[in-house]
Design a protein around this nucleic acid. Structure first.
Lengths: 139, 139
DNA sequence: ACTAACATTGTAATCATTACAAACTGGAAA
DNA sequence: TTTCCAGTTTGTAATGATTACAATGTTAGT
């Protein structure tokens, strides 16, 4: 996606498309690794030495509020973020630390939803060993 | 469950059944509210004024290690614990804060598991409004 | 009863996140 | 274009759950 398109997307949602917000959102769109706030900060400080950690947090909150970014629910120390807001699950490898997307059937996901509850967020989360690490460890 | 039975259960797993560990585990067995470490501490300090917060953390870690207690994966500030280790999901109400168990079909849960991965933990998590709060807010 | 391994306790440290206030910016109104 | 102001960014200080650590206490097996 072009920077200008991203800017328009933010504008259309009433979010002022500042350089910083664009940078954070663009980073998330380019890196589908579910980074933490600090990872994003580390990458962006390289390009703009005055970038502030607080701004990363602020931008993430704004993007999450606008439903453009999802804050993942995981048992890790830090929070992780995902620009892919389509329904899917996540797998956290305890060996290599990688967080992988898990494709999940839409009907199956729907079937999980508890009757009577108003579901605003849903997360299907796994942890263990990814295929590569499972192989290396002997499963 | 009787205190002695709990003690035997711990012993059989090589865990010394100390008063403190028994108290923490018993609290979790009696209170199916998915309490946080601090909630447990607040309850147990009443009965034993020398009870330490660190001991609650230590005991919980030990119980989790022994697979007697599950550490829940949620987007809350604190970690929550559950003595019910059978597979089921959780719903966190953003209004009243309650964490409810969500019964989930075993076959359905199994169907979610991604091929090729070694799954050690699995969590199906929802947040939103519980039936009571949804009704009050007008869904 | 002795002793060595294991547990508990209280305090201090850690670390991700938030609070806050001052400085800055960008777009609307004149 | 200039002015102005609401909204943003920034750096530092505070928060708060959890962990580290070291001293003290306890238990189980000999």
């Amino acid at each position: 996606m072009q920077y200008q398109e991203i800017a328009k997307m933010l504008s259309s949602r009433g979010i002022r498309p500042t350089q910083q917000r664009l940078a954070v959102y663009d980073y998330l769109l380019q890196h589908r690794t579910h980074p933490s706030a600090d990872t994003i900060y580390g990458a962006l400080i390289e390009q703009n030495p005055t970038f502030s950690r607080t701004t990363v947090y602020n931008s993430l909150h704004t993007l999450v509020q606008a439903a453009l970014v999802k804050e993942l629910t995981m048992d890790t120390e830090e929070r992780h973020y995902d620009a892919d807001i389509r329904p899917h699950g996540h797998f956290h490898c305890r060996q290599c630390g990688e967080i992988a997307d898990i494709r999940l059937d839409g009907d199956l996901l729907q079937a999980l939803r508890p009757a009577g509850y108003t579901v605003q967020e849903q997360e299907v989360y796994f942890s263990g060993l990814c295929p590569a690490c499972g192989e290396a460890t002997g499963k």
